[in-house]
Design a binder for these strands. Structure first.
Lengths: 112, 112
DNA sequence: GTCATAAGTTCCAAAACAAAACGTAGGGGC
DNA sequence: GCCCCTACGTTTTGTTTTGGAACTTATGAC
């Protein structure tokens, strides 16, 4: 089964995952909840490639989770802000944050 | 950056995602919360390939999210049950379930 | 003009995935 | 015994996605 087929699954969890069900997408949301909104911020913070980042942002905008907003017109620069739809996933990330703290302690020094 | 490198990330969300951060893994958890425990049940319910399923189950067991349990000794058959660690992710899936119901209505009839 | 900034795009090799067949170890019918 | 069934996987082959790094475009600062 493919990704795209998940969006019409009988199960609401599966449908949700068709939008946010990969690690990079969820890391973008984490950054949004931390107040980030710019392409370069996401790229640096998460360590994902610009290639993947661009693709994921596009899908999040298409799905209405983020909104692409012009924040400078010369030169044209866009950033990404959470919609209400996007905000409502915050509790899921909160659970993951608490779970990570409890069950996945850092084993060695790490960066980014 | 790769998956494996995420497990020592400074961010607890990223560390959590290093274990459950792909859609198939989260669908396995969904099935567990629905009471399923067998290989064939997961395979049929989620629509993922057996190949991927076997790999994901192995990692979930290694990470202590599921426990592989012998339920028949002749022939040897194993199934997979949630540990306390696995149980504690349930609220995250609950958020995704509610979100999916609210924001991702089914557009056409779909199976499995 | 030259450098820096910021949001992407393009290219190619490497890794992950999908689909389907195969393996293994019994159990049950006959 | 022999054949088919169940159930947990593994293997194989070809396609898709990802990772990494360089490149583009538009503009402001020097």
């Amino acid at each position: 089964m493919k990704w795209s087929e998940l969006s019409d699954n009988w199960c609401p969890v599966a449908r949700t995952l068709s939008v946010v069900g990969d690690r990079w997408t969820l890391l973008i949301l984490r950054d949004c909840y931390l107040g980030k909104s710019r392409f370069e911020e996401f790229a640096e913070s998460s360590g994902m490639t610009r290639h993947i980042l661009a693709e994921r942002l596009k899908r999040l905008v298409e799905e209405g989770v983020l909104e692409r907003r012009l924040y400078s017109s010369a030169p044209s620069r866009y950033d990404y802000v959470l919609t209400e739809k996007g905000e409502e996933l915050r509790p899921a990330l909160k659970v993951m944050k608490d779970w990570g703290k409890k069950y996945m302690p850092v084993r060695r020094e790490a960066k980014a």
